[in-house]
């Protein structure tokens, strides 16, 4: 196994700059997710690391060795594609064996390795079938199997779960993470699904229009988003973001109600953020409480998502399922230690 280093990567398609200046080190055995919306350049970065896309400038190192000029076949990496890309005319056995056959390994060695990998992924009974005869989940496993066959230096995943239904996706998420931990393979994983990134990764790289917005551990990113973009992108339901004005240690809501900020903030207009699950909703009015008008309740079974407003300012609250909602007289408290502040112009965390 080995580290992956991306140094000062730039990529242009014609005159269009896709990636400005991207640097990242995936440490040995680490699992890093590239997370961002469609078109943010995450798949392009992955494809450049794989050697499937040429870079405009920069360097790629795998295991400390510069691989920038090398073809994909010489980079000793394995990749799992979104559509699995299993060879449709070959049996599952041959799909798994293909990489070793190219390397002219002996038939005995190939058979032994295919059986070992098939047993690890519990696909022994599928070896004689063709990809079209397999379900989505089975195809996903075969794609994983093909990737680990050669014991590569690093794993690259390009949204491997996005073609699966929600239940299977949850299941495969756990399987991929367990397999990665068991084999200790350095992994770069591309996804637009924040749940995947949060649950699987050692670290997450949040990308926006080819630039890194934040790199950090999943909880760090959740609890201390570095920018408005990250705050808005991570978390479901999304963080409440309210444009406010500062006034001597307080922030003033659009309605004019003051909320204690608990710290000194630059004067002028800023954005206040608070996650829906951190807001306390009750029928009792406290010293800092604000009146809250409930407009819609979504019952999810495990919790309720309450939509409403504080004197005209929209605010979403997550409320426990087993507790009765307050009636007409509802109040919210915005705990000081869960308030986030962002610069209104740059979007950076204050």
């Amino acid at each position: 196994m080995a580290s992956i280093e991306v140094k000062n990567l730039k990529k242009k398609f014609g005159e269009v700059k896709v990636i400005e200046d991207f640097s990242l080190t995936v440490k040995d055995r680490e699992f890093i997710s590239l997370l961002g919306p469609s078109g943010c350049g995450k798949s392009t970065i992955l494809r450049i690391v794989a050697g499937l896309e040429e870079l405009t400038s920069g360097n790629i190192l795998i295991g400390g060795k510069v691989v920038t000029p090398l073809e994909p076949k010489d980079r000793d990496i394995a990749m799992v594609f979104q559509n699995y890309a299993l060879y449709p005319h070959k049996t599952i056995f041959e799909n798994l064996a293909y990489g070793l056959r190219i390397r002219k390994k002996s038939e005995t060695e190939i058979t032994a390795r295919v059986k070992e990998v098939a047993s690890l992924l519990q696909i022994e009974q599928l070896l004689e079938r063709r990809p079209a005869q397999l379900s989505g989940g089975q195809q996903q496993r075969v794609a994983m199997g093909r990737a680990i066959m050669r014991e590569p230096q690093a794993f690259l995943f390009d949204e491997p779960l996005s073609n699966l239904d929600a239940k299977l996706r949850n299941h495969m998420r756990v399987e991929i993470r367990q397999l990665q931990q068991r084999l200790g393979i350095t992994t770069l994983y591309v996804t637009h699904d924040q749940v995947e990134a949060m649950t699987m990764s050692d670290r997450i790289v949040v990308l926006n229009q080819g630039d890194i917005e934040q790199i950090g551990r999943p909880l760090e990113i959740y609890e201390k988003p570095a920018s408005l973009f990250v705050a808005n992108f991570i978390g479901s339901p999304a963080m409440n973001l309210i444009k406010v004005k500062t006034d001597a240690g307080n922030v003033v809501l659009p309605s004019g109600s003051p909320v204690a900020a608990g710290r000194t903030l630059p004067s002028g207009e800023i954005t206040l953020g608070i996650r829906p699950e951190r807001i306390k909703l009750s029928g009792n009015k406290g010293a800092q409480s604000l009146p809250y008008r409930i407009t819609l309740v979504e019952e999810l079974g495990s919790q309720k998502i309450v939509h409403g407003n504080i004197e005209g300012t929209d605010l979403t609250v997550v409320f426990p399922e087993d507790t009765a909602l307050p009636g007409e007289a509802a109040f919210v408290d915005l705990p000081l230690n869960y308030l986030h502040f962002f610069d209104a112009r740059s979007g950076k965390r204050l």
């Binding site: 994909p72 076949k73 594609f81 890309a85 990489g99």
Partner: peptide
């Protein structure tokens, strides 16, 4: 991606 998978598997273009 079929060709790309083969290239990553160790095959030339």
């Amino acid at each position: 991606q079929l060709e790309e998978a083969a290239m990553v598997d160790g095959q030339s273009h």
